[in-house]
Computed example of a mutant assay.
Amino acid sequence: MRKTIMETLVAAVLATGIAHAAPLPLQDAVITATYNGSPDTIVGLDHLFQPEPGSNITALDPTGTGVEFLSADAMFGFDFDASGLLTVIANNAITPGTYQFHFDFGSTLAAPLTAFNLLDASGIGGSPILSLGANGTSIDIDLSGTTWTEFASITTQLDAAAVPEPGSAALMLGGLAALTAGRRRTRRN
């Protein structure tokens, strides 16, 4: 009975450590963007969407109330959320053209991005092309083959690798030590 209680407690501690291991994928991110390969054709929130040197770099909006980037032609808005949710919004009706966007998070992510899943594209015609950079710190969005009605949007989810928090790791190690001590005690009896 005592062994069962000890193993149950250890399992609970280990489960708690695993459940709290994943950071928010984009929390505290600083993003550098380009539109059709140019830093001058996209503007960020930190610069109040004004074209000026460095306006293609912005921090994630901590309030989550608006977009972080606008294309300089005001056709597209990009709204990133700390949880990894990305919404792309068309400000006008848009016909096919060259619309390629690159977003680089550099070393500001807690963990590399591992997945980029399109959740909803019902407001557009055609298929956007979404891809992750090789090192997991950047994404590419190619909207060239798409058509949009005014205010249509797509929603995607960026996910990151789970990285244990320091407190969770300590809990997990403590649980393993308790399990080992319990097993040694059982063998001696």
Results as ranks from 00 to 15, higher is better:
Met1Gly: 14
Arg2Ala: 15
Lys3Asp: 13
Ala12Asn: 05
Thr16Tyr: 10
Ala19Trp: 00
His20Cys: 08
Leu24Ser: 06
Gln27Tyr: 11
Gln27Thr: 07
Asp28Gly: 12
Val30His: 03
Thr32Asp: 08
Tyr35Glu: 01
Asn36Arg: 09
Asn36Thr: 09
Asp40Trp: 11
Asp40Ala: 15
Thr41Asn: 14
Thr41Ala: 12
Ile42Thr: 08
Gly44Met: 02
Asp46Leu: 03
Leu48Arg: 08
Leu48Tyr: 07
Gln50Asn: 04
Gln50His: 06
Pro51Val: 11
Pro51Ile: 01
Glu52Thr: 10
Glu52Trp: 05
Asn56Phe: 02
Ala59Ile: 00
Asp61Met: 07
Pro62Arg: 03
Thr65Glu: 14
Gly66Ser: 09
Ala72Thr: 04
Ala72Trp: 04
Asp73Gly: 10
Gly77Ser: 13
Ala82Trp: 01
Ser83Asp: 15
Ser83Leu: 11
Val88Arg: 01
Ala90Ile: 00
Ala93Tyr: 02
Thr95Leu: 15
Phe101Glu: 04
Ser107Pro: 02
Thr108Trp: 07
Ala110His: 04
Asn117Asp: 14
Asp120Glu: 10
Gly123Met: 07
Ile124Gln: 06
Ile124Lys: 04
Leu132Asn: 06
Gly136Asn: 06
Ile139Asn: 07
Asp142Gln: 15
Thr146Leu: 09
Ile154Pro: 06
Leu158Thr: 00
Asp159Val: 08
Asp159Thr: 15
Ala161Trp: 00
Pro164Thr: 00
Gly167Met: 04
Ala170Val: 12
Leu173Asn: 09
Gly175Met: 09
Ala177Thr: 10
Ala178Asp: 01
Thr180Lys: 08
Ala181Leu: 15
Arg185Ala: 13
Arg185Ser: 10
Arg187Ala: 13
